[in-house]
């Protein structure tokens, strides 16, 4: 399956990735090869087979919504960001 320019742009936008022209050319080729490989699943009959998304054999359990102290301090977390001001993370203009 060939990936068109438009499809590649769409995937890049879903992925929030800026790509150079060279990267786009490379990705078109790589994606085509990868998709052609994974498409061999078409040979497999999966009719009436339920899907598996998790293998941890557990069921959902509800717990009380308790407040517990965080081990990591607010200062330590804010120190990880590039820019913060007045206990908040600074980002470029949104609107």
């Amino acid at each position: 399956m060939d990936i068109t320019e438009k499809e590649l742009e769409h995937l890049a936008s879903l992925s929030n990735l800026s790509l150079s022209e060279t990267e786009k050319t490379g990705l078109k080729k790589d994606l085509k090869n990868i998709i052609s490989y994974i498409s061999q699943l078409d040979e497999l009959d999966v009719e009436n087979v339920p899907p598996t998304y998790q293998v941890f054999e557990m069921e959902n359990v509800w717990r009380d919504d308790e407040i517990k102290p965080m081990e990591t301090s607010r200062e330590d977390l804010l120190a990880l960001t590039v820019e913060s001001f007045d206990n908040q993370i600074k980002v470029p203009k949104v609107l």
């Binding site: 995937l11 890049a12 992925s15 929030n16 990735l17 800026s18 790509l19 150079s20 990267e23 490379g26 990705l27 790589d30 994606l31 990868i34 998709i35």
Partner: peptide, 16 residues
């Protein structure tokens, strides 16, 4: 950030 920060293989996998 993502375009500059991820390696080519990371980008392939995200796109796939």
């Amino acid at each position: 950030t993502r375009g500059e920060g991820f390696m080519p293989e990371n980008k392939r996998r995200i796109m796939i």
